[in-house]
Amino acid sequence: MADGPDADVRLTEYAELHGCSCKVGQGDLDDLLGEAGLTEPSDDLLFGVGEDAAARRLTDDLALVSTVDFFTPIVDDPYDFGRVAACNAASDAFATGATENLDFLVVLGLPQELTDVAPALLAGVADAVEGMGGVVAGGHTIVSPWPFAGGAVSATASPDVLLTSQGATPGDELYLTKPLGTQSAMGALRVTDGEFADLVADAAGRPVERIGEEALAWMTTPNRAAAEAARDLAGAATDVTGFGLVGQSAVLAANSGVGVEVTRLPVIEGTEDLSELFGYGLADGESAETSGGLLLSVPAARAADLESRFDAAGVFYRRIGRVTDGSGVTLRGPELEPVSR
């Protein structure tokens, strides 16, 4: 947290929706794309609309992946907001397996009265991008009633290793590389009013500040190492963000023409009861996640190799289900596993 002049600023008070929960709903987005005539694939792209990012073949052995992502504050500290925003935006490129030559163009909007926090916010972005092996190459800043931050991201990879949400097949194992619960954790931190704050603290079962610290640590953990470990083993991938685990699983199921069965939900310890209090739907896989993990569909014969690579790289992972014949997403249970760092 900031100790300087930005310490008293509460960025989340300047927006009514926070983090990836500010995204347009999945159904509304599908309708919008359909009405705009943007649902058909382009012959000029390897993939595009409907995926986490777009990819264009530059040469036989090089593809350029590009994406843009930004959202409203999910944390109050400007520096931390910058870090989360950068990790979240880059995750869309990493979900395709593109991790090299990472360039980041900052997208930033702030109310006039908050322009003093811009240096700290940009420093957070820059530090996070540098930590992912990338470079901040420029950007665009506007005055906006709601603050928001993120970026336009480009990265490269061989076309042969690129991943989409279209390659899952029945029998695949499903892996998730971060626990869920960021919406509940950060929602609890925003509650400061006496009686309800006590109710939140009781529901959490552990210090709310500690839950928030763990959520921040997960949100600022890049998905680059997970992507590098998985990209020649996984058949399909996406990252878990505003649509929640079930929403992103539904996209993968629809795009691959398969069913998805979820049997396990790793969650940040304490967030399951907070979600029940707030009504976020974490136990049903419906809560919005910000800078969440990768959801990977992996052929069963390659699962052991993937786990070995994750272990070697220090990547968190859980097998959370499997791909089936049929369609849609089915929850079997699922078992909730509390995770603490």
Rank of each mutant, 00 (worst) to 15 (best):
A197Y: 01
P266E: 08
G50H: 08
R319P: 01
T141W: 06
T39L: 12
L58W: 06
V24G: 03
G293S: 13
A95R: 00
A55T: 03
L108I: 00
F70R: 03
Q26P: 01
S275Y: 00
W218H: 10
L62G: 04
V260H: 03
D127I: 07
E286D: 11
R322S: 11
E173R: 13
T263D: 15
A89D: 07
V153C: 12
S291F: 06
P5K: 12
F81E: 11
L108T: 01
I320N: 11
T169F: 10
T141C: 06
V246P: 02
R10N: 04
G97S: 09
R56E: 13
R309C: 10
A15P: 02
G82D: 12
S297G: 10
R341Y: 10
R318K: 10
D52Q: 12
D239K: 02
G138K: 07
S249P: 06
L174E: 08
D92T: 04
L199E: 15
D3R: 12
D69W: 08
V129D: 07
A229D: 05
S165K: 10
G259H: 07
A230L: 06
G138R: 08
E113M: 05
W146S: 14
G181I: 04
I211C: 07
A152G: 13
R332F: 01
T72P: 03
F310Q: 09
R57C: 09
A63P: 04
G48W: 03
L38A: 12
L105M: 14
L282I: 13
A312E: 15
Q166Y: 03
G181C: 03
A225Y: 02
H18S: 13
S144G: 09
G259N: 09
A128F: 02
E173L: 11
T177K: 05
D127V: 10
R322F: 00
W146C: 08
W146R: 15
